[in-house]
Design a binder for these strands. Structure first.
Lengths: 215, 215
DNA sequence: TAGATTGTTAATCGATTAACAATC
DNA sequence: TAGATTGTTAATCGATTAACAATC
């Protein structure tokens, strides 16, 4: 349970394993070898075995891996067996899009509140939840056992809001604002810088590199 | 101009350099040393110099780097001095959010069309552009010099659409659908798997790792 | 048991950091 | 010129791949 120091490179691959295993499971496939999985996923079998062995042995020599078992185990490692309540801060298009994305619920992420400063948006309904005023934020976080805050607001407000959230005791921030947040290490930050991603695409498009990442 | 084989790790850092340099420029700072920049960005000065030197020398010994010059050069490397026309496929919340994001235009990415299969959405206006039927897609791509397609549709349709786009001659796909696209190497694919990102956050949140990535 | 495939150690590769000579 | 700081080579570190003994 308390495996230490797994590299972020490994963690970053877990969701993709989880996705492939879920698909295999849905197709009714019961067992798979690292070799077979490596062909489907276009990674080396060696990497697959190394990755899984960071968390202890999930397989069986001579047999391979049981798909459903492995799927569940990776889900647990990712914390998907637990429930996480999140709020969205910034009810613009992106905030509303994320609030509306029902698949998060399936993984245990519960959309619990959405906030904005704009009076025209406050009171509007996003998948059954009314947009609240930012004035209610701190109290709401504390009263509703919120783990995760999703920042979908302009970068000008993001740093200040992140600090408020920190003092409200939030555990993790999913940051879509185009700014780096520097918080204490007990608050996890995951950045999604969409324009960075687009620039990367732009680079590769212009160079037309032939060696490109498979996933 | 034809620097070869720059690693994706380096490319992935360029947009962040670009952002910091843009901010420095806007604050009126004219020169910066790798040391100073490294402190602001929380990376090593050595990495900064190595990264820049992949593209030739942008600095001057004893002086450092000229902020505006470096900013412009990195912009050029990323292809931001060129214009790229893009279409969005899937006019749901996320598609509309990306269509509405005007900052892309500032970097040369021109929102040129948006498509959907849903009759209730077709004809709707997204930042001055009417949602078109998917029936018009192929002709539109060919007739309007479209470089990039943004896939914001359910994964069930994504693979098929990607293949259509490939035969229409698209150069790059920014893929938000939760599926891996396997296309020929002359088409660049950049994936933004939001749920993967959220799962990564979930892992780190549950482990509360102390060593976390700074950006 | 024999065959298959994992778990794990060892080898390789690539990326990051350190060091310093070149030079502005 | 002396000081500062790059550009670049060398050293280190970490991640990936290969190999194979363990074992189901």
């Amino acid at each position: 349970m308390d495996q230490k120091d797994i590299s972020q490179a490994v963690i970053g691959r877990l969701p993709r394993y989880f996705r492939y295993l879920g698909e295999l499971k849905d197709t009714g496939i019961e067992r798979i070898s690292s070799q077979e999985l490596s062909e489907r996923m276009k990674v080396t079998a060696s990497q697959i075995r190394q990755d899984f062995n960071n968390f202890g042995g999930f397989g069986q020599q001579g047999y391979g891996y049981n798909v459903e078992y492995l799927y569940n185990e990776i889900g647990k490692i990712l914390g998907l067996d637990k429930t996480h309540r999140f709020v969205i801060i910034g009810a613009g298009n992106l905030g509303q899009a994320l609030g509306g994305y029902i698949n998060f619920e399936r993984r245990g992420f519960i959309f619990s509140g959405i906030f904005d400063v704009n009076k025209d948006i406050i009171g509007k309904d996003v998948r059954g939840i009314k947009v609240r005023s930012m004035d209610e934020l701190d109290e709401f976080i504390k009263a509703n056992d919120i783990d995760i805050a999703v920042l979908t607001l302009p970068k000008t407000g993001a740093v200040e809001v992140a600090e408020r959230l920190a003092s409200d005791g939030i555990k993790a921030i999913w940051n879509f604002a185009h700014v780096d947040l520097h918080l204490t290490n007990d608050i996890q930050v995951e950045n999604v810088h969409l324009s960075d991603s687009l620039m990367k695409l732009s680079y590769n498009l212009n160079r037309n590199t032939s060696e490109n990442d498979v996933f």
